[in-house]
């Protein structure tokens, strides 16, 4: 299959990345060459193969449901590009 410009713009929307109109052509070309490469997998019949879900022969551990950390609001807010004393600040969402 091939990806056209419209589809790429749609995927970019899903990924929340704005795409520069001037770059759409080269992006389309690159992605199509990558997908052509990826689609070699279609040569293989995998009807009877179970998909791999973990490469470790162990299941994920579960931990006790208890609080082990907390009261670090300052640390968490420290790297925010915009904040007030208690919250992350974002552009207005509700009109």
């Amino acid at each position: 299959m091939s990806l056209d410009k419209e589809k790429i713009k749609h995927v970019a929307k899903l990924a929340r990345i704005s795409v520069d109109e001037a770059k759409v052509d080269s992006l389309t070309k690159d992605l199509n060459s990558i997908f052509k490469f990826i689609e070699q997998l279609n040569e293989l019949n995998t009807d009877k193969v179970e998909p791999l879900t973990s490469i470790l022969n162990q299941s994920l551990r579960s931990r006790k449901d208890e609080i082990s950390d907390g009261k670090i609001r300052e640390k968490i807010l420290k790297n925010s590009p915009k904040k007030n004393e208690e919250f992350f600040v974002v552009p207005k969402v509700i009109e």
């Binding site: 929340r16 925010s80 590009p81 207005k92 969402v93």
Partner: peptide, 22 residues
């Protein structure tokens, strides 16, 4: 929002995300 670079462009939250990531 929480850390890293933020774009100053965009009129709403979605545009802020898109420009930041772009």
């Amino acid at each position: 929002v929480r850390y890293g670079y933020r774009s100053q462009k965009g009129k709403d939250l979605i545009e802020m995300y898109e420009n930041t990531r772009s």
